[in-house]
């Protein structure tokens, strides 16, 4: 019975995401038409397009047709995952974005794992001794962490560790002289990954630490903890076995719900370190006013956030037995 409930819940949750995807596509359509200037400029997105190419696009998007027909043409393209073509890169926008996605995911996952592990551990320690020196110092540092622009933090990290100390490369993902495959390649990529991942983790560490600390403090004051202590459970068992297991649920949710915010941080970090991911692509697209790429990125990034929200809800449903599947 429970299995059926879960699959119904999954279907329902996926169905809820569909209108949101529509909203994203409609937003793109709206932007093309509401922004000042000729819509064709936003669809071409490049200065050096031939007149024939422009005419072709005009016809394909039905720009001489009524708005309803145009919307239908646009939706049809989207249904075929056709995000347009970038004249600058001479590549379809979807292929371009997909080719940049692995670099972004590598950076995000590395940083997310590191910051979650350290953030949760620090949060637990701080919650165990509220108002101690450790608690107050880490609380202040966390507040400082999310009061600074992440790209500025990146600039400082770059100046100190790369330019002055010379420990890490200043930009990119590979060195030209490094081996193109095998261990040499992996070591080279990790060497390049270190600084952007460090910058980006520090930023998220702040968020995860603050959350864990608050949730742990709340949980540690609940009755079942008193019961566990009264039973004679060891302090370690009370904190990590009982309290953390309960406090970590909302932390998982918040990480999932902040996925959009995290992607934004990733984009800015990539720009500082010229990390060849989707963020760097966004930067390049803005500089070149490459509108098809810009809209394509907005669409893909929005879909990723919507997907992250669904996945978070599903994970939550699986790990928390109290969730009612409605």
């Amino acid at each position: 019975m429970r299995g059926l409930d879960i699959s119904l819940y999954v279907v329902r949750r996926l169905a809820q995401a569909v209108p949101l995807i529509f909203v994203v596509i409609l937003l793109n359509f709206f932007l093309i038409h509401a922004a000042p200037g000729d819509p064709i400029d936003f669809l071409v997105g490049s200065m050096d397009a031939s007149p024939e190419y422009i005419e072709d696009l005009r016809r394909e998007f039905g720009l001489d047709q009524p708005l309803g027909t145009q919307l239908w043409a646009y939706l049809t393209r989207m249904a075929h995952f056709d995000l347009g073509y970038s004249l600058r890169y001479r590549q379809s926008v979807l292929d371009l974005i997909l080719s940049r996605m692995p670099a972004t995911l590598l950076l995000m996952v590395t940083a997310l794992v590191a910051s979650s592990a350290v953030g949760i551990l620090l949060g637990v320690i701080a919650a165990q001794r509220p108002y101690s020196a450790t608690d107050q110092t880490s609380t202040f540092l966390a507040l400082a962490g999310y009061s600074m622009p992440v790209f500025w933090l990146g600039q400082l990290v770059l100046i100190v560790f790369s330019l002055h100390l010379g420990w890490f490369p200043t930009q990119g993902m590979y060195s030209l002289r490094a081996p193109a495959e095998g261990w040499g390649r992996i070591v080279d990529v990790l060497h390049h990954l270190a600084l952007p991942a460090f910058t980006y983790s520090l930023y998220h560490l702040a968020l995860i630490f603050r959350l864990t600390r608050i949730k742990m403090q709340e949980t540690l004051s609940l009755d079942f903890i008193v019961t566990a202590r009264a039973k004679g459970a060891s302090e370690g068992r009370v904190v990590y076995g009982h309290a953390l297991r309960n406090a970590i649920l909302p932390v998982v949710t918040v990480i999932g719900m902040n996925f959009g915010f995290m992607l934004a941080g990733s984009v800015l970090t990539e720009t500082v370190f010229a990390w060849p991911g989707m963020g760097r692509l966004l930067y390049e697209a803005i500089q070149a006013r490459d509108y098809p790429v810009l809209m394509g990125l907005f669409t893909v990034l929005s879909l990723m956030v919507i997907a992250a929200n669904v996945v978070t809800d599903l994970i939550y449903a699986v790990i928390d037995p109290r969730v009612v599947y409605r």
Binding site: V23, I32, L263, L294, M295
Partner: peptide, 20 residues
């Protein structure tokens, strides 16, 4: 609810890029 899900930073990017 829509605003809560759509990544705001990127929406700001496209809004400003398109409208100047």
């Amino acid at each position: 609810e829509v605003f809560q899900v759509i990544p705001r930073f990127f929406l700001a990017v496209v809004l400003v890029a398109f409208f100047g």
